[in-house]
């Protein structure tokens, strides 16, 4: 059933009937979600949706094209600041400012793609890391962007409607997230997507069969930066306030963790990675209050560790989860998913 018989089957967006059905169910569930959830849950899902967009963009670069980036917080910051600056200073409406910010971010992505033509591995990692650090440094210096004071997001207005609640923001963010996921799936199915994969597998071989390396490597950076920039623009509104501090190195590293833990070169993986990491970041903070674990941890803190340092358990657990996932499944959560699927499909064999 996974056999592809001709080219058109390969480039089809959706493979099978059940897939269409489940997709419809998912979309319906996403549409119904704000009606049943409370505002805190919607806020969490908004954050997740933004991280999904970023993880998709980064996965395109890391998983599909085989380039590493430790500087995506830089693009995230560019997207966020550009959106707000265009709205506050140029008085553009949100619907124009957001894509424009995406394109500004993409332009920076193109620039960062240039050294990537010659660099790989740790060398590229350092170049991108430096990019991320430099961007926040420069943003903190420029008074147009509020300097180190940060910027307050203006009220979000769409087609004359004021968006003030989390459900309202959800109504803006979730469709964008869905459209971008769809767009990325589309992209990976085309010549461009296959060229990216060819570059990843062997850039020299790819060049030999006629893939223009300069074009595709910089394009991968640009598209990835575009996604991240859009994510940043939306983030500015979910948070309501941004400062250079919001976009530190740790953010870049978390993005990379989402992609790798979720599964390299897989859209479903990016989504799963973004969901898991975001959720862990928010929920692990309360690990000391869990019914059974909490008292044990408290007692342990009293005996061996310190009570005031107890919340740091979240880092230990977080790190452990990341390590275990990669140890047991190099393809990350996506690998688990594939294996489960195969297990049930071939059951009882």
């Amino acid at each position: 059933m996974d056999m592809k018989r001709d080219y058109y089957e390969d480039i089809r967006l959706l493979d099978s009937g059940p897939q269409v059905f489940w997709l419809a169910v998912l979309l319906a569930a996403l549409a119904a979600f704000p009606l049943v959830a409370d505002s805190y849950q919607i806020y969490t899902v908004n954050l997740i949706a933004i991280h999904v967009i970023v993880a998709l963009g980064l996965n395109l670069l890391v998983g599909y094209t085989g380039q590493i980036s430790l500087g995506h917080a830089g693009f995230f910051a560019i997207g966020a600041y550009a959106t707000l600056a265009l709205m506050l200073n140029a008085h553009l409406p949100f619907i124009v400012a957001l894509p424009l910010a995406g394109f500004i971010s993409a332009a920076f992505g193109f620039l960062l793609g240039l050294p990537a033509l010659r660099l790989e591995g740790p060398y590229l990692a350092i170049a991108t890391l430096g990019f991320g650090l430099t961007i926040t440094q420069i943003l903190g210096r420029l008074d147009v962007f509020g300097g180190h004071m940060g910027l307050q997001a203006p009220p979000l207005e769409l087609f004359g409607l004021k968006v003030t609640s989390d459900a309202g923001r959800y109504a803006v963010i979730m469709p964008i997230c869905v459209i971008m996921t769809w767009g990325l799936r589309n992209l990976t199915k085309t010549r461009v997507g296959r060229a990216f994969v060819a570059v990843r597998d062997s850039d020299i071989a790819a060049e030999c069969i006629g893939v223009n390396l300069t074009y595709y490597k910089t394009l991968a950076f640009a598209v990835s930066a575009f996604f991240t920039g859009i994510g940043g623009g939306l983030m500015a509104f979910v948070l309501g306030f941004i400062s250079p501090h919001t976009f530190n190195v740790m953010v870049s590293i978390m993005f990379l963790a989402m992609v790798v833990v979720g599964g390299l070169g897989s859209i479903l993986g990016s989504v799963m990675g973004a969901v898991l990491i975001t959720w862990l970041q928010l929920e692990l903070a309360r690990i000391g209050e869990l019914p059974l674990v909490g008292p044990v941890l408290t007692e342990l803190s009293n005996q061996v560790f310190t009570l005031s340092g107890l919340p740091n358990v979240q880092y230990v657990v977080f790190g452990l989860i990341m390590v275990l996932i990669i140890i047991f499944e190099p393809l990350g959560l996506y690998g688990f998913w594939i294996r489960t699927k195969i297990y049930w499909r071939t059951w009882p064999f």
């Binding site: 990379l256 880092y315 990669i326």
Partner: peptide, 18 residues
């Protein structure tokens, strides 16, 4: 790389906890 990052967090957490 991600495994070493995970280890980094664990060590950081343990040291701050202790």
């Amino acid at each position: 790389i991600i495994i070493t990052l995970g280890l980094e967090m664990m060590l950081y957490g343990l040291a701050s906890w202790r």
